[in-house]
């Protein structure tokens, strides 16, 4: 039986599914629920209902590396500045989880990293506070101003709902996004997942992407390597059209991504099995899957099968 690139990539995706880590994932959800309830108790009518955001909400999560995000929409009159809101949520969580977790300020979120539990698992929840643009506007438009954790108190406008909406129903694109996240994670590349999402969706918008999983991946890789270094190449943030996510990469990073993808394409062309060097199955969840999937393979079931003459000993 020869190596089949599409089947192999299918197995890479299968072994990275969240269903394999249900127990751990339940713990994440439990903690997120707890944080959500604490925030609701503390801020009461200052906030709208906190909601789940991030890769799980977008169905692009992979089981080898994931975190859960909780977005918290504050009302316009809750705080006078975005930074004040951010700091208040940070202080509150720090106080609440004083002995239980390491609470820190991240780029746009507050990370709550629980100390290792008795199973040896570390649970991390990222809380993203945002404030509506004007009074009562949030339930209509879902725009939020979120803090950017620098020293000059800058903030940016975003629309997490629009970002989630942007990827909804795009089953094919999500498969490719997950594959590229697996590659990124296994190769320790520092591209933002959000960047990967947008560029894959753009490829699907601009190219006819069909065929099996490998054929689709190949077209996307070709698209990215051809387009990424073009001068006017841009990636509009669906949550803020004046925000160009392509600009989050400098020209060195863009060239390096182009080279990486060119290498994948060249080396797989040279020898199909080289695909395994770039996308590895999650070994932890492999055995069970490969067993149940086996079947007798027939390449031609519509006409009579004639065996070759043969020598036995």
């Amino acid at each position: 039986m020869s190596f089949n690139k599409a089947d192999y990539l299918g197995s890479v995706l299968e072994t990275h599914k969240m269903k394999h880590i249900n127990n751990l994932f339940d713990k994440f959800k439990e903690k997120r629920k707890e944080i959500k309830e604490k925030l609701e108790g503390k801020y009461e009518e200052k906030i709208y209902a906190p909601f789940n955001s991030g890769s799980y909400a977008k169905h692009t999560a992979i089981n080898s590396k994931f975190d859960l995000d909780l977005a918290v929409p504050f009302k316009r009159n809750s705080f006078s500045t975005i930074e004040e809101m951010f700091n208040d949520v940070f202080e509150f969580l720090k106080e609440e989880y004083n002995d239980l977790a390491y609470v820190r300020k991240q780029k746009v979120s507050i990370g709550v990293e629980f100390y290792r539990d008795t199973d040896g698992d570390i649970i991390q929840i990222d809380v993203v506070p945002g404030r509506e643009l004007s009074k009562d506007a949030y339930p209509e438009e879902y725009y939020l101003n979120i803090n950017i954790n620098t020293y000059d108190g800058t903030y940016t406008q975003t629309n997490i709902q629009a970002q989630i909406e942007n990827i909804k129903g795009k089953q094919d694109a999500r498969q490719i996004i997950r594959l590229l996240k697996i590659w990124k994670c296994q190769k320790n590349k520092d591209f933002k997942s959000f960047f990967m999402e947008l560029i894959v969706i753009k490829a699907f918008d601009n190219k006819i992407i069909s065929g099996n999983l490998w054929e689709k991946l190949k077209i996307v890789l070709e698209y990215i390597k051809d387009e990424i270094t073009r001068e006017n190449f841009s990636l509009k943030d669906p949550g803020n059209s004046s925000n160009d996510i392509a600009k989050t990469l400098d020209s060195y990073q863009k060239n390096s991504l182009k080279n990486d993808f060119q290498n994948i394409l060249d080396n797989v062309e040279l020898n199909e099995e080289n695909l395994k060097n770039y996308f590895k199955e999650n070994e932890k969840f492999k055995e069970v899957e490969s067993e149940s999937k086996n079947l007798y393979r027939v390449n031609n079931s519509s006409s009579v099968i004639i065996p070759p003459s043969n020598q036995f000993g």
């Binding site: 039986m1 007798y296 393979r297 027939v298 390449n299 099968i305 004639i306 065996p307 043969n310």
Partner: peptide, 10 residues
């Protein structure tokens, strides 16, 4: 040799 033909698992 057989597996190179129509059936892969003789």
């Amino acid at each position: 040799k057989i597996a190179k033909g129509d059936i892969e698992n003789p």
